[in-house]
Design a protein around this nucleic acid. Sequence first.
DNA 1: CCATCATGGATAGCTTCACTATCCATGATG
DNA 2: CATCATGGATAGTGAAGCTATCCATGATGG
Lengths: 210, 210
Amino acid sequence: MAELSRESGVAIATIKYYQREGLLPPGERTGPNQARYDQSHVQRLKLVRALLEVGGLSVAAVRDVVDEIDERNSTHNVLGVAQYSLPLRQVEVDDEARAWAMKQLAVVAEERDWRLLPGTPPTEALVSVLCSFRELGHARLLTVLDRYADVADRIAEADLDSVAGLDSTEAIVESAVVGTVLGDVLLAALRRLAQGAASRRRFADKTATS
Amino acid sequence: MAELSRESGVAIATIKYYQREGLLPPGERTGPNQARYDQSHVQRLKLVRALLEVGGLSVAAVRDVVDEIDERNSTHNVLGVAQYSLPLRQVEVDDEARAWAMKQLAVVAEERDWRLLPGTPPTEALVSVLCSFRELGHARLLTVLDRYADVADRIAEADLDSVAGLDSTEAIVESAVVGTVLGDVLLAALRRLAQGAASRRRFADKTATS
DNA sequence: CCATCATGGATAGCTTCACTATCCATGATG
DNA sequence: CATCATGGATAGTGAAGCTATCCATGATGG
């Protein structure tokens, strides 16, 4: 275990905590007070740290994700993990606002064959965001919805391409999870850079210090 | 203040807390122990709640953002707020990995005229994500980088279009902030839906329950 | 063979964050 | 004039994510 700690840079007490929380499977027991950890434990620990630190997931969310990875053994619906076990921000809204938001979403979802299921994290997150736009008096931001939906389709294609061709189901699922969680962060950061560049282009702002 | 609380659904104690933390300006004083709050306070409070609950920002990040909104009075570089005062996840990496990541990024940044400044949040977040991909043995996910960069450009154009034409600088800046923060959430949720649809298309999976 | 030391397991403590509750002096209000 | 809400300060709460301590056991070295 000391080695596992050294290899991963995670404190021993923290590793024990992760085991208690079910983020990390127990080592292979070699005696009542001895256990061996192999490369798969190192890999899992790295995954956990990446999801926590880079992906910003909570410990509970990481537990859900790794549980899903472990018990998922059919190839079908690999991205379902990402769909339903990954948390997205949501907030409660009143019925009128909700109905309005669902109507906006139904339009973009229908022409793309998306399944807009009420109660699922992505749908609820979308409702939250749209209602916030409206509530804040920035309904103008809704104009981006259709274009965002277009790029979302392109992103999803890229995501599937990136995991297509992997052999083991486990590898596909893990890759899909990493790609989904860290992909959100990746995209947000790229968007910032692109915004900066676009802003500069558009305003031809010589004085920009950023 | 009771009215402000009722109107916004935020507890009085919480409003006081936000004032202490500088998220909300004090009311216009009408006496030593009386203050008046107007519509701008209601609006600001809604903004704060949206950034906290839907956007997932910390109280400290929201303070930075509203400070930026308030003291920003030139039109130039409005999206700079989003660029530099918004937090993105980052993690420390060793020099070798960092150099490798920067090289990958330099390629995509250069052909798009993006400014890849070391030390800035977007750049550091990108380095973190790329290093995680590599560290986790999912370097294959790097193939998405170029396509993600393309869509980031398109998103940025949509973002600028959505705030173009607003008259007051304050409105532009606030809209840009809201659009950036909630836009991240919006995009992540749309991506999930698109992934589900793409996954279904590609695997023609009749048994999918999701 | 015996002293030492790391290990696994359990439990309690720590720090930060985002609130929440209490107290108090003041002054508005019926 | 009695009451009650307000603004301000301070302390307390609960969750989250570690971190530290303790203990019995058994591996390890001289």
